[in-house]
């Protein structure tokens, strides 16, 4: 899959900045960043032209799984893969997240030079 437009959702400003730089400069994606689940939902309501979503799991108010549910309920095409990015990666969590309908799960901390490659690997599955 050619890197296209990506919706990045993370409540941590620093991580959002680093991931954006990594994905855009190293990976060649066009990143739209949202600082909360609610913000992501608002963005998706206005603009659904994304090729992938990279979604943090632990966020206040609307967390990752809840955001995924909202995005999936008609906001984004079911074809748009949603990948979780989580600092809480344990095998049980991974299985649970996959069952929610995620295309994959990536771990934090991530190697910013390798993140785009890892993401593409997940999307290719």
């Amino acid at each position: 899959m050619i890197p296209g437009r990506l919706l990045l959702v993370d409540d941590d400003d620093d991580i959002r900045t680093i991931a954006t730089i990594s994905l855009e400069r190293v990976g060649g994606w066009t990143v739209v960043a949202a600082s909360s689940g609610a913000a992501a939902v608002a963005i998706a309501q206005a603009d659904d032209a994304f090729d992938a979503v990279l979604l943090d799991v632990m966020m206040p108010d609307l967390d990752g799984p809840a955001t995924l549910e909202r995005l999936r309920s008609g906001l984004l095409s079911p074809d748009v893969p949603i990948v979780f990015l989580t600092a809480k990666l344990q095998p049980a969590d991974q299985a649970r997240l996959n069952r929610l309908g995620a295309a994959g799960v990536l771990a934090k901390p991530f190697d910013p030079m390798g993140l785009p490659r890892d993401l593409e690997r997940v999307l290719a599955r």
Binding site: I15, I18, I21, S22, R25, K88, P112, M113
Partner: peptide
């Protein structure tokens, strides 16, 4: 992991 993500990420970049 959250702060480590930032440290490791920014250093990595």
């Amino acid at each position: 992991r959250t702060p480590l993500t930032s440290i490791r990420g920014s250093l990595g970049l």
